[in-house]
């Protein structure tokens, strides 16, 4: 990908966990991630499967993209679980929500629980890219252009 600043090797070693109960959304997320250059992508359809991966420390996870509204274990619960696990507490966490940003209560709740960023559906690849690069502390090509 042309817009990758850090080398191909680095991004290929980053592990991303994608959690969404909607298969369509999951497939779009995975395709975007692949187009950004990510290779290690785990995609699961529910909070329970995600919990298993988070609790299994042999699975490397650097970034979690999770849907907020899922049956049983939702995004907020996953976030709390991640933050409460000493080995996972620094994992970057982006909440994907179909809620509108006006619902401040929810956003505040997620902030308090330590979310790194959130993104509202539907979103464009550019925004997703921006948010991921921001939370991972990577320099974007845009920054160089505008800066």
């Amino acid at each position: 990908m042309a817009d990758i600043v850090d080398g191909q090797v680095e991004i290929a070693t980053v592990s991303v966990l994608v959690v969404d109960d909607d298969a369509m959304v999951r497939s779009v997320l995975v395709e975007y991630l692949q187009s950004f250059g990510f290779v290690r992508i785990y995609d699961v359809k529910g909070g329970r499967q995600a919990m298993k991966l988070i609790n299994d420390l042999s699975v490397p996870i650097d970034l979690i993209l999770a849907d907020w509204q899922m049956p049983e274990v939702d995004g907020l619960q996953l976030l709390k679980l991640t933050r409460n696990n000493p080995a996972r507490k620094d994992v970057k966490f982006i909440m994907i929500t179909s809620q509108v940003p006006e619902e401040r209560i929810k956003i505040t709740k997620a902030r308090l629980a330590g979310v790194d960023s959130y993104i509202v559906k539907p979103f464009k690849g550019r925004l997703l890219h921006e948010k991921i690069w921001d939370v991972l502390g990577w320099k974007r090509e845009d920054d160089e252009k505008t800066g």
Binding site: M24, V25, V28, E31, Y32, S98, K121, K124
Partner: peptide, 14 residues
């Protein structure tokens, strides 16, 4: 609808 739009937007953009 937001899920459906995510699919439409994503697939079209890709």
């Amino acid at each position: 609808f937001r899920n459906i739009l995510t699919l439409i937007t994503g697939k079209a953009e890709l």
